[in-house]
Design a protein around this nucleic acid. Structure first.
Lengths: 348, 348
DNA sequence: GACGTGGCAGCAAGCGCTTTCTATACCGTC
DNA sequence: GACGGTATAGAAAGCGCTTGCTGCCACGTC
């Protein structure tokens, strides 16, 4: 039926051991023998049995990438960058690794289950992207799992997620707080005093940090925040649309809306426009992330650029052991304020 | 070191066979025994060894999803839908499967290598998304590979990709030609006679089909096409931007620009605007796909909506054997023309 | 010419699980 | 009370590969 190592060995008139060594190239094999083996492999169209190989060698060539939402370019860009460094087929790395991205959909259970599945496959490395969920119980379970993975020799890297102390994981954490603060300060400098904030889902670190930055900026400028000015939602345009209408209902005098991310900001723009408000003349809008479409919005979106591709690439290299992890196992990745047309001084 | 089945068996005072059966649940085990085993599993924190299990059972729970560009929501949306039906953790399917998405980056070699890697892992199913590459040699290699996968029992489904005859693959093909034709006909009905077309990469089926539809519409209305009106590029906004400037240079009298997809259309809009042209007053713009951001563009983009999520979900179900494949192994998935603000009658 | 030394290839023992076949025990039945 | 039947557990043979160790041969050295 299916061709095995032994078949190849028979055809090449060598022992299975030799074939294995030719294929793995980590043991001296005479050139003539190697050629004979390769020829047999080719003729028989042999494909290594991954599970068998993983079992015998006690390692696999799988690398897992966990993302919260694969349909969101925020994660797509990171995943793409990570994967290009993992090597995968055609990548610059040597061994061929199967970089697999797993979509948790933001669900704690799926996150955990995927980790178990990866652990089960004896993954060589795992990269977790994006914000973490802040539930204490879930966090404990995650940390335990990460610890176990690390102990089993799987390299664990967090990309855009806060450090998980005592888990052996390397963290490349986005400075969401700093970025959020800078963004709101920009708005305040423009003269805004009544700012709506559309936050992401409550229990996400990303959400909390960006919001904390926003509030820090308000506090630093002595602006007292009205609880009506903050609305929570999901990280998508629809949510931004709904939340904006809600904000407008609560306080029509807002002169600026800060969104959890660019998609939300886009939805906010649509809602404002439908409400007959001009951007930025009547209301300024700001996003976060600087995804590719943000510059094409009309007006172009003021936002905080996160170096997603760079961070992903670095995470990938660290996961492959091709770059030294940062000192202390954690590095902060800063964002950059991009001032564009969607923000201006308030009317009047 | 690591906990094995045997350890669990010892602890539960049963044989390894029994533990295996409890875990797989496909053989009668007395309730009391099962409980004892489960308790031991829990206490020892046992995690099944995937490779060993796959080796012994000669099947794995891996399902591969190949995408051309994971950073593009077009693929992200499909991947997300496919994966939700695959079951993955928390999905509605029974067994826990590891749905993995592999990013080929549009490279033929990587596509092939990923398929080999998946074959190596003895994947349970493989879903290929998006357009295929039209190189004859590559196509032959792909078909051979798909055939081999199918023969080995891997279910192969093509989602948004033309049928690959004699490979045993099921195809859900997007009607790119029909959509393209409808879109251009809409423009012609509005009165446009000089239409620029920004096509995708030359060697892609998607590119060719959409372009053919466009040309069919022109021909049907007796409009002779000027070769200067077509420019090829990539499927991203940058490309749309550049191509539009090029089109304008070649023929400033164009009254409409049809783009290969929505991202390209967005880039086109930006370029037109920078050139001092208004949309749709001076030039109409149309996209393809109807990605989430397209409705938020200003003006909102006229485009052809492709039911990405629906098609992906169906592909996923077929891959899991939970839905009958279409008769003949192929089904056409139609797009729907979405007329919005970016198209209008030509000036004057 | 005997011996030491590399360079290569083969043997064989697993890796941790699944599954067929067999064994046991207990039940009801005539 | 012997027998067939049913329900459940165990023994053991792999699944296809890797790798430590051994063995052989050819060469160079004194």
């Amino acid at each position: 039926m299916t061709v095995t190592l032994a078949d190849v060995a028979a055809r090449a008139q060598v022992s299975p051991a030799t074939v294995s060594r030719v294929l793995n190239g980590n043991y001296p094999v005479a050139a003539s023998t190697r050629e004979r083996v390769l020829k047999a492999v080719d003729e028989l169209d042999y494909v290594l049995n991954g599970p068998a190989s993983a079992l015998a060698a006690a390692t696999s060539d799988l690398v897992g990438i966990l993302v919260n939402d694969i349909a969101d370019p925020f994660f797509g860009i990171m995943a793409s960058a990570i994967q290009s460094e993992i090597g995968g087929p055609g990548g610059r790395a040597g061994g061929e690794r199967l970089a697999v991205v797993c979509n948790t959909g933001g669900s704690p259970e799926r996150e955990l289950t995927y980790l178990t599945l990866l652990q089960r496959q004896r993954a060589a490395a795992v990269v977790l992207t994006g914000g973490a969920i802040e539930d204490a119980q879930h966090k404990a379970a995650m940390d335990a799992k990460l610890r176990k993975l690390a102990d089993a020799g799987t390299r664990v890297v967090l990309c855009g997620r806060p450090q998980a102390p005592d888990t052996g994981a390397i963290a490349l954490a986005f400075d969401n707080r700093g970025g959020g603060q800078e963004l709101t300060e920009h708005l305040i400098r423009l003269g805004h005093r009544r700012l709506g904030y559309i936050a992401g889902p409550e229990e996400r670190t990303t959400t909390r940090h960006r919001l904390e930055g926003h509030r820090a900026a308000l506090a630093a400028h002595g602006i007292e925040e009205d609880p009506r000015w903050t609305v929570h939602g999901r990280y998508d345009r629809r949510s931004g649309h709904e939340a904006t209408l809600e904000l407008l209902r609560r306080d029509p005098s807002l002169t600026a809306v800060v969104a959890a991310n660019d998609s939300v900001a886009l939805g906010a723009c649509a809602a404002l426009r439908e409400s007959g408000l001009r951007i930025p003349d009547d209301v300024s809008v700001a996003g976060f992330d600087d995804l590719p479409f943000s510059v094409d919005a009309v007006p172009a979106l003021t936002t905080v650029r996160l170096p997603l591709a760079e961070a992903g690439a670095r995470a990938g290299r660290i996961a492959m052991g091709r770059e030294e992890p940062p000192a202390g196992g954690i590095a902060a990745v800063r964002g950059e304020l991009m001032v564009r047309g969607s923000t201006a001084g308030p009317r009047g």
